Amino acid sequence: MTKRQIAYLACTAAVVASGVAAAASSADWQTVHRVNRGESIQKAVNAAKPGDIISVSPGTYHESVSITVSGVTLRGAGAESTVIVPDKASTDSTCAKAGNGICVTGTQSKPVEDVTVRSLTLRGFKKNGLFATGTDRLRVEKVTSEKNGQWGIGQERSVRGEFRHDTVQANGDAGLFLANTVDAEEGAVDSKAVISDNRLLGNRIGVTVRRLRNVRVDSNEATGNCTAMFLVGDENKPRPGALRVTDNYVHANNKFCAKTARLPFLQGSGIILTGIEDSLVADNRVQDNVGKAPMSGGIVLAKNFKGALNQRNDIRDNVVLRNGTADLASQDKGKGNTFRGNRCAASVPAGMC
């Protein structure tokens, strides 16, 4: 072996060793904060730094949890075994005072980034199981949120959220609620959110997407709700739209919900679009959604209460059967909406099947 070869091998070995050391050092930066039954989840969250994991053991925890640090993961031992419920004796945090279970909170100028909440149950909170505002790339995975007063999982003023393999059940309003903002009239946000592989069971509305653009809603199952999926827009600009609603199983959403100040009574609605543009609704199975409400039916392009029209939406290749008052319904006079390749029996107006 020449001197040059020996020198090259020595240099290579030093570089590899340096890389291994750097990797080990990087791994050392990640701390796992373990929370055992009877201990405080919030205390562990307060001690966490970006990249840390809060690992919560099986048990029932009576508290609300506020996350304001980027890059942390809150991980239960499974939705069946790690359960967070309200502490009725204490409202010593903003999150608890608001009636929420978990709050992930940033601002538009300084969003909380890359937070993950996984593998736990949120149950019985006065307002929302989980509520997020001012976040970027929030991930909520394998979470059950049930029997909460308003939303199971809600998010506003946020982008690139991912909601996968969650179960939202028996919540007072929407199981999953994503909006540009909940307290003001503003144009749509380019959200880039993903709502995928979730179970939406027995809520007032399974999933609501309000005043957003570029949201993907796919491969979810919705049943037992008053309305399965409600895609809501208005006259503000940018207009809501560019949504992709595909490969969902939407069946028997026949629960009755009384009217509110904003909406008529709901029952028997599969997928509703109101004031939405340039969106795709395709390859969904929508069946046995039956009611006599103004927006009852399988896939409904509904009248918007502020007069915003559905425009240039593509409704195609869906199986839409045994829905009442119709499988497909177009109630407004928006231009450019197309219905093609759908398997259905009845439409209003006639001729769309």
Rank of each mutant, 00 (worst) to 15 (best):
V320N: 06
L231M: 10
L201R: 09
A308K: 07
G71V: 08
S158T: 04
W29H: 10
V20T: 10
I41L: 03
C226Q: 06
S40H: 08
L130I: 08
D190N: 13
I41Q: 01
D218K: 15
P238T: 02
A22H: 14
D87A: 01
V104M: 02
G291I: 04
N284I: 00
F131G: 10
A132Y: 00
R157V: 03
R216I: 14
Q311C: 10
L201S: 07
A308S: 08
K335I: 12
H62L: 04
S26Y: 13
G341F: 07
P349S: 05
G152I: 11
R239N: 05
S25F: 15
N337D: 07
Q150R: 14
E141C: 09
F305R: 15
D234P: 07
L301I: 06
E63P: 00
E162R: 08
N100M: 10
K97Q: 12
A96Y: 06
V182C: 09
G297N: 05
D234E: 01
A329M: 11
W151K: 12
K3Y: 13
T144V: 13
A47C: 07
G268K: 03
L309N: 06
S119H: 09
R137A: 02
R37N: 15
G59Y: 05
A23E: 14
E80S: 14
T260M: 05
L280P: 10
K259M: 09
F177N: 15
D190G: 04
Q267N: 04
N171L: 05
G78N: 07
K147C: 14
S57R: 12
V65E: 01
Q267H: 08
G341H: 06
N284W: 02
N323C: 03
S119N: 11
P238A: 01
N148F: 05
H33I: 01
D114F: 00
V117S: 12
A27H: 04
D278R: 06
I102N: 03
N304V: 07
N236D: 10
F265R: 03
D87N: 05
T274S: 10
K335F: 14
E235L: 14
H33P: 03
V168M: 09
A174S: 14
V69M: 01
M352H: 12
T68E: 00
L122F: 03
N323R: 08
T246A: 13
L301P: 11
V35E: 02
S57Y: 11
H165P: 04
H33Q: 00
T121S: 12
N148E: 05
S64L: 00
I6A: 13
R285S: 11
P294E: 08
G134W: 02
T181E: 06
A222C: 03
T167R: 02
P238Y: 05
A258N: 05
I102E: 10
K3W: 10
D173G: 09
